[in-house]
Design a protein around this nucleic acid. Structure first.
Lengths: 243, 243
DNA sequence: TCAATAGTGTCTTTGAGACACTATCCG
DNA sequence: CGGATAGTGTCTCAAAGACACTATTGA
């Protein structure tokens, strides 16, 4: 219950209030590799450090709306997969004041992220998750680590990976993504089998030529951008511990 | 990143701030049935409605510490399983002001909850989740529904069920809990097999007499109260959608 | 003895994984 | 033809489920 813990009425306005921000961990795939968007801070504290993009919530918008606003401000992208990750609120995580940060994960399609992130500005960058900056601002290392771990575990039992792919892709490309993110090699035959059995993909007539035998391209069946259906599961074992 | 969205420095203090509360959905098992603790509101808004216990955070305590404080205030119980659920922050969910609520789930052992919840006070009650009040205060129906769904899905792939059990219990009791919470009958033989293979339980010499053949009692192997090891998984399929 | 509850054994089916095989392109 | 990449078929083994069986108590 809110604003009332014991038997008497409370005056909630007399409480000191923390600041509330929304931070968005934005993932995309660049050259088949998982990247995350970070911004470089220009002021104290943590001046020069890289940080997860975010900002204060407005009093009239929902948390998710705030996350979408931040996302669009940073990348110009809308209608992407967005999910609340966790809320971080330890005292002292920001030296200026008490800040509660509601962290979100966003998945941006591989072909969409080109639109965004103006190339000339050096203070916003896609970082490969395998080679992140040594130190991040605030407790953002912890947030990012948790985001990556959650993404990994969710990919194992959801269709989330499709959110990262372009409209058309080959099955072996998809396999590659899974390998990237799970960090292990998968068997080609078994992958073909499972993905076909799942019936989540739709064959197209499009074929892409390459060095060897040309590849058939496929697309994800349902409305991709906002799909939250959790159907396909590559592997059974996954763990999502709290940070 | 916090307190800085664009290129210039911000004065964060000029932002209006929401109130931040922590709500704790406290589960326990009474007569083998899942119950949740609710408190009845005595003041506007939602006077007379039942609500999830919670309260404002102090400026010098972490979110989890606030949740533990609330939990102890309501039930007198410490050292229980506690996990952050989700953060609810839609504008208008509290008519008095903008409130961000960080919701937690707590699991209280079956034999512990007797200590708590003074019987004479009618404004704090354990409610069976199968027969909850029609309407709850604020958006607490949504919070509670999500908590139950999360609990269900987590029980399927974690050892969380043990957190609800007393120190000693029989395997068929454990099976009963799983059936209760999953809402389906499980095969006795298969349950015995899986639970033994998991090696999570430790046989005791204690035997409980009943109507038929006496039952051997078991205990959970590791430090139970704070154990977060996710090892035993009754079934593979689980889904945890956002609320 | 039987009713009641506890606990075990075993057969069948499913599905994951390993891995060898075939297919189609370019040169 | 051979190298390269795409895609298929099939065997094995382990785990899940169904279900029949045995065990131990009290009345």
């Amino acid at each position: 219950m809110e604003a009332e813990t014991s038997q008497h009425a409370y005056d909630p306005t007399r409480y000191e209030r923390p600041a509330v921000t929304v931070d968005v961990v934005i993932f995309t795939l660049i050259n088949q590799e998982l990247h995350v968007l970070l911004v470089q801070r220009r002021h104290w504290p943590f001046e020069g450090f890289w940080a997860i993009p975010g900002g204060f919530i407005n009093m009239d918008e929902s948390l998710e709306a705030a996350a979408r606003r931040e996302l669009e401000e940073e990348t110009g992208v809308r209608d992407v997969y967005l999910e609340q990750l966790y809320t971080f609120g330890d005292p002292g995580r920001d030296p200026r004041m008490r800040v509660i940060s509601v962290a979100y994960i966003a998945l941006v399609r591989a072909d969409a992220q080109k639109i965004s992130v103006s190339d000339e500005s050096t203070d916003v960058r896609w970082w490969p998750v395998r080679a992140l900056p040594d130190q991040l601002a605030f407790d953002h290392e912890q947030i990012l680590a948790y985001a990556i771990s959650r993404l990994r575990s969710k990919l194992e039992y959801t269709t989330l990976a499709f959110q990262l792919l372009p409209e058309l892709f080959s099955i072996l490309e998809l396999k590659h993504i899974y390998e990237q993110i799970l960090g292990e090699k998968l068997d080609k035959g078994n992958f073909y089998r499972k993905i076909k059995e799942s019936n989540l993909l739709e064959e197209t007539n499009v074929v892409r030529e390459g060095r060897g035998r040309p590849t058939r391209l496929w697309r994800f069946r349902r409305d991709r951008t906002t799909d939250k259906q959790f159907v396909f599961r590559w592997r059974e074992d996954r763990i999502d511990r709290n940070p």
